[in-house]
Amino acid sequence: MQLETYISDLLYRYECVIIPQFGAFLTQAVSAKVHESTNAFYPPKKVLSFNEQLKQNDGLLAKYIADVEKIPYETAVVKLSKKTKALKSYLAEGETLTFKNIGDLVLTNEGKITFTPSYHLNYLTDAFGLSQFVSPSISREVYKEEVEAIEKVVPLTITPEKRKSKPYLKYAAIALIALTIGSFTASNYYVNQIEQHNLLAQEEANKAIENKVQEATFIIDNPLPAVTLNVTKQTGNFHIVAGAFRFEENCDKKLNQLKGLGYSARKIGENRYGLHQVIYSSYETRAEAQKALYDIRTNENKDAWLLVKKLD
C-alpha cells in the first residue's frame, strides 16, 4: 500500500488527514514571508504538523484508498488497520518513520511521537509554480544629512555681483519673447491645418469605401457543401494539472507538447497569482482522475497534481 502517496494527495485538498488509531497530519496556510537578514522571499504555503490525539476514523483516507485501488471500503479499512499496526511496531523498535514529501515521525523516551515536517512540496495549490528567491539588498544614500554636515563646517556665503546696466539686453529679451510667441502661434495654426486636412481625407475615403460596398454584388455559382464537425467537449470537475507558467507562450508550448503526446490537453486560464495553467485532461469521477494521475506521475511527470474545480 502506497500510504504516503495517498496522504500526500489528500493534503492538497484537505486540512486534516487521519490515519485511524495512529494520528493525523494537519495543514495550516501561512502567508508569504521575507527574511530580513538574507533578503529571501518565500511564497505562501501550507505548514504541516502531526497530532497523535486525533485517531478516530473519519472515513476519508479509507474511502480514498478504496476509490484508487478499486476495492470495497471494508477491505480498505482492514488493509489500513494492518498498516497502522506495522507503523506502531516500527516506532516501538526505535525506528524513524519517513513519509516521503511529508516528514519524519520518531517515538520519544516519554512515549510521545515527534514530527519533523518536510519542505520538498508546497501543498497550497494556489501557490503552484511559485518558488523561493533572493533579492539583493538596496543601498540608500541620504544626501541631505551629508549637506547639512558640510554646511556646519564650511558655511556658504553668496555675494551678489555688481554689473553695469546694459539697456540693449532688455530690448533683445523683448524681441526674443516676441519671436517665440509668433513661432508658437504659427506652429499651432499649421498643426490645426494638417488635422483638418486629415479629417477631410478620412471622410472622403470612408464615403468611397461605402459606395464600393453598396455597388458590390457577390454571386456564388457553385457553393461548397456544408461540413459538420463533431467536437467532443471535455466535462468533469477533476483535472490533472501539467504545469503553471508565468508567460503564456511557455504555456502554449506545453499545450502543444501534450497534444503531440495524444492528451486532450487544454488551457484553463490564470490562477490567483497570474500563472497560466494547462491540464492533461478532465474527468467526471475522482476514481478516473486518480488512476490517470498515477499513470502520469509514473510515466510522464512526477510533479503533476489533481485539481478539483468547476470550470466555466
Rank of each mutant, 00 (worst) to 15 (best):
Y6N: 13
L10T: 02
Y14M: 01
I18Q: 08
I19W: 03
A24M: 10
F25E: 09
F25Q: 02
L26T: 04
V30W: 07
V34C: 11
T38F: 05
Y42W: 01
P43V: 13
V47G: 02
Q56P: 05
D58E: 12
G59E: 08
A62H: 04
D67I: 02
V78A: 03
V78L: 05
S81V: 04
E95Y: 05
T98H: 04
N101H: 11
I102T: 07
D104P: 00
L105W: 05
T114W: 02
T116D: 08
N122R: 11
N122M: 15
Y123P: 01
A127I: 04
F128Y: 03
G129F: 02
V134Q: 09
S135A: 13
P136R: 13
S137V: 06
S137E: 15
R140Q: 06
E145D: 14
V154E: 07
P155L: 08
R163F: 14
K170A: 06
A175M: 00
L176A: 15
A178K: 14
L179D: 08
G182P: 05
F184C: 11
V191A: 09
Q193T: 04
I194H: 06
N198M: 13
N198W: 02
Q202M: 03
E210V: 10
N211A: 15
K212S: 15
A216D: 03
I219W: 07
D221E: 15
P223T: 14
L224F: 09
V231W: 00
N237K: 15
F238V: 09
A242T: 02
A244L: 09
R246H: 14
E249K: 07
C251Y: 03
N256S: 12
N256Y: 07
S264Y: 13
A265Y: 02
R266Q: 05
R272P: 00
H276Y: 08
Y283N: 10
R286Q: 15
Q290S: 14
I296M: 14
A304V: 01
L306S: 09
V308L: 06
L311A: 08
